[in-house]
Amino acid sequence: MVHEYGVPVGVKHYPAEFKADAVALYRCRPGATIKSVAGGLGVKTETLRNWIRPARRASPRRPLRTAGRCPDRR
């Protein structure tokens, strides 16, 4: 991969708030897959999966999907 200024070209950077909202959205949709949520947000499946992993590690005994912090559904 070609690097420009130490960052791989084509790598997108997302704000922390967007990442947190994406994880919360996934948590609020019990029947949804990572792939479907990622597609709806316009991010790659593996990208969303990488954002979800730390949440699972932080509280492995607590279910990942809860209704506690759901973004507004417009």
Results as ranks from 00 to 15, higher is better:
M1A: 14
V2T: 11
V2A: 14
V2L: 15
V2M: 10
H3M: 15
H3P: 01
E4V: 13
V7P: 04
V7G: 00
P8N: 06
P8V: 12
V9G: 06
H13D: 07
Y14Q: 06
P15L: 00
A16R: 15
F18P: 05
F18N: 06
F18A: 14
K19A: 15
A20F: 05
A20E: 13
A20L: 14
A20H: 08
A20R: 15
D21S: 13
D21T: 15
V23N: 03
V23G: 02
L25N: 10
L25V: 08
R27M: 09
R27Q: 15
C28D: 05
C28A: 05
R29L: 08
R29W: 00
T33Y: 03
S36V: 11
S36L: 07
S36N: 07
V37A: 00
V37E: 03
A38S: 07
A38K: 07
G39E: 14
G40K: 12
L41Q: 07
G42F: 02
K44H: 15
E46D: 13
T47W: 00
N50W: 03
I52N: 12
I52H: 11
P54E: 02
R56G: 04
R57F: 02
R57D: 06
R57T: 07
R57S: 07
R61Y: 01
P63V: 08
L64S: 02
T66Y: 00
T66W: 01
A67S: 13
A67R: 13
A67P: 05
G68Q: 14
R69C: 06
R69Q: 00
C70A: 11
D72Q: 08
R73K: 09
R73C: 04
R74L: 05
